[in-house]
Amino acid sequence: MLIFHLGPLATSLFSLLAILALVLSFVMLASHWLKNHVYAFAAESWTIAAISASIGYYGHYPELYVIAALTALFRGTFLPYLVIRLVNRLDIQREFTPLLKPSSSMILGAALVIFSYEVSRQLGIALHLTDNIAVLALTCMFSLKLIGFLMMILRSEAISHILGLLVIENGIFLGSQILVPGMPALLELVIIFDLLTIVMAFGMLVRFLQTHAGTTSSRGLQKLVG
């Protein structure tokens, strides 16, 4: 398995890239400008593409180069383009109704990272992998997941929800690249296209929301209760 025989250089490279992806999610957490979110998301996707490519190189999985190229193309370029287009059409430049200030959300995010680390450490002990890169990969995967959920909870703008979901998916992709690089490539390809479909569906629904419900903020969506 790849995670058992990695050289020190490869390990530090993967760690660097994984941490970079994690830091970028904090950039998203700290900013209320929607465009900044999208740029941070694009950068995160390119980082993950770099992880895929380097795993392909060090682990001798040539199909991962294709995955890396598609990740950069779709997750890193096309999806951000779609979301930016949506931001421009809706003419919503920033999140006006966050529940918490950026500083408080970042502290919450940090707490979630610590929690993720603890869970990963326990898993690492159970699997006899305490000093392995797997623990870092698991930490990043769980952290991105929880930070994505945090973004969806704290923000009420529909586009922020889409971006939160994309961060969650990025987390899963990042983790799966390091932990299970041998997973059938077909599955990863289909998941990329699935993500594309779902973002398009979101885009259509957000525009329906604006025309028919008159709001794109979940605080305005109060009709269905009980």
């Binding site: 979901l165 998916e169 899963i172 979101f202 329906f208 969506l221 009709k223 269905l224």
Partner: peptide
Amino acid sequence: EAECIEAAWKYLIVVSAGLALALL
């Protein structure tokens, strides 16, 4: 109608977020 779109939006967001956990 406004309610239908609201329901559809909620459905898509909640279930997609849930299914992301399942993928993990």
